[in-house]
Nucleic acid binder design. Structure first.
Length: 495
RNA sequence: GCACCAUUAGCUCAGAUGGUAGAGCAACUGACUCUUAAUCAGUGGGCCCCGGGUUCGAGUCCCUGAUGGUGCACCA
């Protein structure tokens, strides 16, 4: 077996060949690093550095990746990297023995090692471990990127995230922060009496949002199925079922383009709360953003791409009609018909399609003139009914709905409604969506009969909200691209 | 899907006007018992993204294609 392995050396470049040869040499001498089963780790790097007073002179053992090595004859320094960061070790021949020191000198950057020794400070004041033992725990056969410039090539950073995580510390911090954000959200909602649920990913009817789904086939039932595009319709069924407060943090899939803020699979939080409305959702959303920022960052003041904001200040609340009036100078409250709206769109050189109605035109004005202005946290409220097939109408203005979207740094961060619970109106809205689909709108919803059946059993008045977790993480970590907050973003295969 | 830009050593990058492919780090050999982008001396390392074309000659110019980045479109 080893002979086979050695034959594979032929095509390799010099550096890779040498590392494999080192490994085979060790294996021949009965020191196969891959036979090491465990190592007794007593401390992590950061704990030692932060608790130096207490640990000085004590013996500790750490384990991690060898990130640097400076050999000065019979004594050396190296850095070991673990989950918390780096710690220096001082390795002297006279302390670990001649044979061990010879092994140490053969270690490569990237090897996994265990170091045991006393905690001390060097002349220059760096907290270090005075090694009494250095063990190779696993061999690295690949070469890490250069220590000073690191790995910059975005293609390789995303495809080989493990390397990115090893050499770019801020990447590791981003993903640790992402994890904290999600656990703080869970803690916040759990404390409010929400229960976390899981609903189907493979669905016969991909509804609850305007998006093209991924299609696949379930062989055992010989049925075409889709990957979900939202969580909405199943969570509302649970409100009908009496669970009162539910949420799900889950992956959804939309068969659409990639961009700096779009990935075909992304993480959505949706929650539904019985006996409240979209005002309740606005308060909840605002408080949630604030609380998470405070817990994870220790402050509500953040800067994203040069935009400073303080999440502790009340978020601006503006209806879509008011926003268009404010930023485009166009007053849709005076527009009564589709014809008037389209004439206005012509004047402002806004392109629309035949099937667009008054509310669609208002939304086009919003997208063209308002979105780009919404840097500070702003709730845009009361969307037209045409673009809100799952939201309750405003009782005194049935062309509009009790809906809001939260915008921060020009990006939609959340979308919420007073949930439509009238099954007859809901059926009519679905039918309008199906008509749009017939007219060529590939993102329109289709009728979900079982969901309608659920509504017919009676759904309490309910507020619901969806929050894009990836974009929230981008905001709180300062990440410029969604790919920087996804461990393994979607990439085109190389072959 | 469209436009523009990029792709050169393991990594980060140079390579005017077409004329034998370069640096730093990493690696290898040697020296060195408090270094830290260690230092000093020496050595090796390349399908210049793939494929065509122009040319006496292409990393460089032209055309296909691949992958990535940015913007647009779609969308959250």
């Amino acid at each position: 077996m080893q002979e086979n392995a050695e034959q594979t050396l032929d095509g390799l470049n010099e550096i890779l060949r040498l590392r494999r040869e080192k490994l085979f040499e060790m294996q021949k001498n009965g020191k196969n690093p891959f036979e090491i089963m465990k190592y007794d780790v007593t401390h992590h790097s950061g704990d030692i550095i932060n608790n130096y007073e207490e640990l000085e002179g004590k013996t500790v053992s750490v384990a991690g990746r060898l990130m640097s090595k400076r050999v000065m004859g019979k004594a050396s320094f190296c850095h070991i990297q673990d989950i918390q960061g780096n710690i220096q070790a001082y390795v002297a021949r006279d302390c670990i023995g001649e044979e061990s020191y010879a092994c140490f000198k053969k270690l490569d950057i990237g090897d996994i090692v265990g170091v045991k020794g006393e905690v001390f400070k060097t002349k220059t004041g760096e907290v270090s471990i005075h090694a009494s033992e250095v063990l190779l725990l696993s061999k690295s056969l690949q070469v890490l990127p250069e220590k000073f410039h690191g790995l910059k090539d975005t293609d390789m950073r995303y495809r080989q995230r493990y390397v990115d995580l090893i050499v770019n510390q801020e990447v590791k911090e981003t993903f640790i922060k992402r994890s904290k954000i999600i656990s703080e959200i869970r803690r916040y909602l759990d404390n409010m009496g929400f229960i976390e649920v899981e609903t189907p990913v493979l669905v016969p009817n991909a509804g609850g949002a305007a998006a093209r789904p991924f299609d696949t086939h379930y062989n055992a039932l010989d049925e075409d199925v889709h990957l979900r595009i939202s969580l909405e319709l199943y969570l509302k069924r649970l409100i009908v079922g009496g669970l009162e407060r539910v949420y799900e943090i889950g992956r959804v899939f939309r068969n659409e383009g990639l961009s700096v803020r779009h990935n075909p699979e992304f993480t959505l939080l949706e929650l539904y709360q019985a006996y409240t409305d979209y005002h309740g959702m606005m308060d909840l959303c605002e408080n949630l953003f604030r609380d998470v920022a405070l817990k994870v960052l220790g402050t509500t003041k953040i800067t994203y791409e040069g935009v400073e904001m303080d999440l502790s200040k009340p978020f601006e609340r503006l209806t879509m009609v008011d926003a268009v009036r404010k930023y485009a100078g166009v007053d849709f409250s005076e527009i009564k018909t589709e014809e008037e709206a389209k004439k206005l769109a012509d004047q402002y050189h806004i392109e629309y399609e035949d099937r667009h109605k008054k509310g669609d035109i208002l939304n086009l004005f919003f997208e063209k003139f308002v979105e780009e202005k919404l840097d500070q946290p702003t709730f845009i409220m009361d969307h037209p009914v045409e673009i809100s097939p799952l939201a309750k109408r405003k009782p005194n203005d049935p062309d509009y709905t009790e809906r809001f979207e939260l915008f921060i740094t020009k990006r939609e961060m959340a979308n919420a409604f007073s949930e439509l619970n009238d099954p007859i109106d809901q059926r009519a809205r679905f039918e309008a969506q199906e008509e749009l689909k017939r007219q060529g709108d590939e993102e329109a919803n289709t009728i979900d009969e079982d969901f309608l059946n659920a509504l017919e059993h009676g759904m309490p008045p309910t507020g619901g909200i969806g929050i894009g977790i990836d974009r929230l993480v981008m905001l709180l970590t300062g990440a410029a691209a969604i790919r920087d907050v996804l461990l393994f973003p979607t990439m085109k295969p190389l072959d």
